[in-house]
Nucleic acid binder design. Structure first.
Lengths: 211, 211
DNA sequence: GCAACTGGTGACACCGAGTGTCAAGGAATA
DNA sequence: TATTCCTTGACACTCGGTGTCACCAGTTGC
């Protein structure tokens, strides 16, 4: 009986197919543009059937956006792991740095990540989906922040807005991400972006009786 | 020769058709949900052809989102009209209040506006489009802010992020907008949201030599 | 009054995204 | 070897969105 090993094998096979599909898709989409490449083109390049594509990805947009959306768990985990005494601006800066650091750790992946970011920012449909996935991040970050600060996320706007400001900083960094930027430059951009929102993130909480 | 009057007549006829389509669409979408209502349902209710719908609206999403997106010009105009000495948080708060005030001025429209906002926030595809249209707002607000503050929007992240924070405040207000809220309540929500971001909006500019 | 022109409309065909269904194949199990 | 489970491909279908063409109304020019 090796049912666990079997499931692992099946899992790896699935992962292999998903990777093949994703690689073919990203290559075509990034080089030719999102709108002109059809799903038929992608599956032809990957040597699979059209139906299989939609078994692995919910939509054409999903292939691209999942790349960034998957980072959310790491970010939340990191935020939860930051020392409670740390001011919100510092904790959030470290949490959102995690995916950026992951890019830098794998230079061969970094290039593709940057290309995907460019593709998303330049394609309205993808940009919209990316922002939509940020809504989920924001809710999760807000929940974590609320428990950190002992606030009620339903009555106090701070947690949600603090999360929104952190994601705004991330967005700003990504939009300024240029080809050839090294880790040094990325750190710089991140620091500057968080410096802008820090006064609001670390401000003493507004008196709740005002609202 | 009354070519101007003619064009005005044609214009009004077009407006009439567009209104008919929009009303039928909003009623169906708001009551039954965005996904279950097809364009065929809408044009059947409006008594027009499917093709005509797409001559007036770029997409099914467009009917709903245009409602909010059209407000952007008023906001930018108001921001440009605010006294230059006014701190950014105050100027932005007044600018973004314009569309909210417009809702309050027409109670019969206010109800529909709230329903549309609810529909957008509750429908992922619409929420994504709404955020996408906010990108345009943000760019325009950033340009206006940059000229107000004498900053270069390309090198300094402040204008873009300040605009983003203002829109974040608007988003927060809309999400907390409940049935039965009067102008008083809306003012309250707006004040609280802007109070959160104000420390960052009005902070002394970061030294540009840091980046 | 009649012909040409214009702009809006409906009908139709078409494409691409996405889904439901079913039969076939391949690997693990009894 | 027979059975079961999972994946896949093939096919048909819905729906959003577009291009095209013929039709009709109101206008312009003779």
């Amino acid at each position: 009986m090796r049912s666990r090993a079997d499931s692992s094998l099946a899992e790896r096979k699935r992962q292999l197919v998903a990777d093949e599909l994703r690689d073919a898709a990203l290559m075509l989409l990034a080089t030719k543009g999102f709108d002109v490449v059809t799903v038929d083109d992608i599956v032809a390049a990957a040597g699979m059937s059209r139906r299989t594509f939609f078994r692995y990805f919910a939509s054409k947009e999903d292939v691209v956006v999942r790349f960034l959306a998957d980072m959310s768990v790491d970010v939340i985990t990191e935020l939860a792991a930051r020392p409670p005494a740390e001011p919100p601006s510092v904790a959030l800066r470290h949490a959102l740095w995690v995916p950026l650091a992951a890019c830098n750790d794998h230079p061969e992946h970094s290039e593709r990540a940057r290309v995907v970011v460019r593709l998303i920012l330049d394609t309205p449909a993808l940009h919209a989906r990316w922002l939509e996935s940020q809504i989920q991040w924001r809710a999760e970050l807000a929940t974590e922040l609320a428990s950190r600060c002992g606030l009620d996320p339903h009555t106090d706007p701070y947690p949600r807005m603090a999360a929104g400001m952190a994601l705004l900083a991330l967005d700003t960094v990504l939009q300024q991400w240029q080809p050839g930027d090294d880790e040094q430059r990325l750190t710089e951009l991140t620091d500057r972006a968080f410096a802008v929102v820090a006064p609001a993130l670390d401000a003493p909480t507004t008196s709740p009786d005002a609202g």
